[in-house]
């Protein structure tokens, strides 16, 4: 997909991973260029979360190679730290820190990882809270917010580290239907600004609108990878067709 070598933000080459005996990733090869948006879909248990979590080292892998923005993810702790500073992640379950206010959640990493002064970190946090449209909630605790608001705070928290890449693992799956849109809108805006994104989701409307290409995973493999138009109208694999028929009705 990416032509210019310097512009390849994520490179995964023949990545294999085992959980004990279980071969969960079977040779994943994926390249994401700067500013590209990749949507990953596939049946539950196909290894989508495991793959995306490999990109920022939340899971290790046993074979193959991962390079993020030119930094190899090779077990070197310095490389891992450097990659995590560049990669933001948003989880299905939000994972906000419940003992801290929204503001404290947002300034924690900038202050302690980037050693930013508090005042500056707070200004940055307010900037992103306004971007996700909840500046008025800054002094509440996560438990006092709705699911949609919590997920928007989680996005803002990741953005406060000024990442070059954002990973989303089913960001709307734990939300009540009426809150899905407010989160997707924030993600669409982010995509329009040129953020490099890898998004695991089954929101096919979102995929159609923002994805440069869609990855379909099954049983630890990328079965099909294509731009949305092609993916939806002319799926090549039988497994993709079956999956699409199940989620598109």
């Amino acid at each position: 997909m990416a032509q210019d070598g310097a512009d390849r933000m994520i490179v995964m080459r023949d990545v294999h991973k085992w959980f004990g005996e279980f071969h969960v990733l079977r040779g994943i090869t994926l390249e994401v260029a700067r500013g590209q948006k990749v949507v990953v879909c596939g049946p539950s248990g196909s290894g989508k979360s495991t793959m995306i979590r490999c990109i920022n080292g939340l899971e290790d892998y046993q074979r193959g190679e991962i390079v993020v923005d030119g930094i190899p993810l090779d077990g070197d702790v310095k490389h891992l730290d450097a990659i995590r500073r560049e990669v933001g992640m948003v989880f299905q379950q939000f994972n906000l820190f419940p003992h801290l206010t929204v503001m404290e959640n947002l300034i924690l990493a900038p202050m302690h990882v980037k050693h930013m002064p508090r005042r500056e970190a707070e200004e940055l946090a307010m900037f992103f809270l306004e971007r996700v449209r909840i500046p008025e909630q800054a002094h509440k605790y996560p438990g006092q917010l709705s699911g949609g608001q919590q997920q928007r705070v989680a996005i803002a928290r990741a953005l406060c580290m000024r990442p070059k890449i954002m990973l989303f693992d089913e960001p709307t799956s734990a939300l009540d239907p009426e809150m899905v849109k407010e989160v997707l809108d924030v993600m669409i805006e982010l995509a329009e600004e040129g953020m490099t994104m890898v998004v695991v989701t089954h929101e096919m409307g979102f995929a159609r609108q923002v994805a440069d290409f869609i990855c379909f995973m099954d049983q630890g493999e990328i079965v099909e990878m294509a731009p949305p138009a092609e993916f939806f109208s002319r799926p090549r694999s039988e497994r993709t067709r079956l999956f699409l028929s199940q989620i598109l009705h």
Binding site: N56, G57, L58, D81, R84, R85, V87, G88, M89, F91, Q93, N95, L96, F97, L108, A109, H112, V113, A154, R157, A158, M161
Partner: peptide, 12 residues
């Protein structure tokens, strides 16, 4: 998830 969020943010 608390550990993962903290690690993903780059905390040691």
């Amino acid at each position: 998830g608390q550990y993962e969020a903290a690690m993903a943010l780059g905390l040691s």
